[in-house]
Design a protein around this nucleic acid. Structure first.
Lengths: 263, 263
DNA sequence: AAAGATGTTTCATTATTTGGAACCAAGCCA
DNA sequence: TGGCTTGGTTCCAAATAATGAAACATCTTT
């Protein structure tokens, strides 16, 4: 008899397991050895082994001979290009972000929600390009970023509860909201206000104002934010950009509505 | 008895089938309806249906209610970020591309080979800085691009044959090499020469010079190219950049060699 | 109303995945 | 040296999940 009554994550089929493993490898952020994966895996050795083989010769993983370790494969990059173009707001939002960037001269982020986490899909740098590695595809926490809070606050009840449950509530800075209760209160405030602020909750000295991008029927599609540092601006100063930010969010939403797929 | 003697692509297991479907959806370049996929699918209705369901609720695909169609999902973007950072030459090559770009002021491409096709992983051009997945992740043909030819020419015999077989040999321009025979001759010439030229083979008026990036043991890791237009430069003029290009390719290779993975 | 598309569900059959255990190959240590 | 540990690969009978023909819903057209 095998694994009788454990809560056991609802993985759909073999494919689900394989994709879960893919995620695990990606999360490591560096090539991982078989044994390391095995340690964090619910699967028996042989199963994990075969799944890794499959993923590898499909190009979803790459096996680095030299370090004897697995890393996410280039096939993903190819697939992601298609995903980014078709399923992200980035292509549509592009002109609006450009305009906003030009006007405010601060760092702009465009994000969407992916399994309760913030997924950045586009970015514009402040004039001085302190080029961090390209942002698209990067993920961030939902409970302590402006875009994350803005999106979660505007989800419907079910989605919101789900997202609230998925947060890690780690204290990144002294200002981080690190309990579910605090987070809930903040979400209420954001819903009332229409925009979210990040008050050094993720990184010390970094603040931002974020607005949700809502579809005509009120569903959350994503969020835009303007980020700055306390050295350059105060929260109040950021707040003066609110009308511009809201207009941008609205423009993006309208572009999305009027979009028709080609035959 | 099922599917008795067809050549039938060697798909490893259910996971393989699922990923193949993922590719199909991505290739469409626009949301696809169930029926369209079914038409191009070797699988029976029910099978395709279930596979699509699985992929969708795994976030690898997105089902657009409005258009009743499937598109690649955002989970891919997240995964690809990890892949790009760990499995592409882009992070390592970045400073070298920056330097080359600064010096020559022309469009630069960094590409790798993915299943016989050219996969662009980074780019520099005069105007726009990098926007991750708008350029990275894009694919191109191997037989009529500078980077493609440079890489394929330097593969080992097996890999080269495989790549030669995978090409489509479509005539994009009057200059396109559109038979396998012509392609083979060109590859020989490139191997002798050490660099490849694109003589308006992919797009009219567009030319480029490309060099392979080889590891210490001679394996092809990728290629760099400098692209220009006939309005601005001649092939001879591009050729004067050859030493710079080769130096860049070599620098990237050396950076890669000296790279050690963190524990 | 009937006939066509298109998408979804069922269920007995079949084939694939599973995972315990054996096996192999290096290190390591005493 | 020889035995012990650690990391990785292969086997194979049993358990499970995938399969696909066909029936069933819907929603359009005629």
């Amino acid at each position: 008899m095998t694994t009788p009554q454990l809560p056991q994550r609802s993985t759909d089929g073999t494919v689900g397991k394989a994709l879960e493993i893919l995620d695990q490898v990606a999360e490591f952020g560096r090539p991982v050895r078989f044994a390391e994966l095995l340690a964090n895996s619910p699967h028996p050795k042989a199963t994990l082994y075969r799944l890794l083989q499959t993923l590898t010769n499909q190009g979803m993983l790459r096996f680095d001979e030299q370090s004897q370790a697995y890393a996410p494969g280039l096939r993903l990059v190819r697939l992601a290009h298609a995903a980014w173009r078709q399923s992200s707001l980035a292509p549509l939002a592009r002109p609006h972000l450009d305009a906003l960037s030009e006007t405010v001269g601060e760092t702009i982020h465009l994000a969407q929600l992916d399994q309760g986490q913030v997924l950045y899909v586009d970015k514009r740098n402040a004039q001085t390009p302190i080029e961090m590695f390209s942002q698209a595809g990067k993920i961030g926490p939902g409970y302590c970023t402006g875009v994350g809070k803005a999106m979660i606050a505007h989800l419907d009840a079910d989605g919101r509860e789900d997202a609230i449950r998925r947060q890690a509530y780690l204290r990144h800075t002294p200002q981080t909201l690190s309990t579910e209760a605090e987070f809930r209160i903040e979400l209420e405030a954001i819903r009332a206000e229409g925009v979210a602020f990040d008050r050094e909750e993720h990184e010390p000295g970094i603040i931002c104002i974020a607005a949700p991008i809502l579809s005509a029927n009120g569903r959350v599609m994503g969020a835009v934010s303007i980020t700055s540092s306390l050295q350059r601006r105060s929260l109040e100063s950021l707040d003066t950009l609110r009308p511009l930010l809201l207009k941008t969010a609205n423009d993006i939403s309208e572009s999305a509505e009027s979009w028709q797929f080609p035959t």
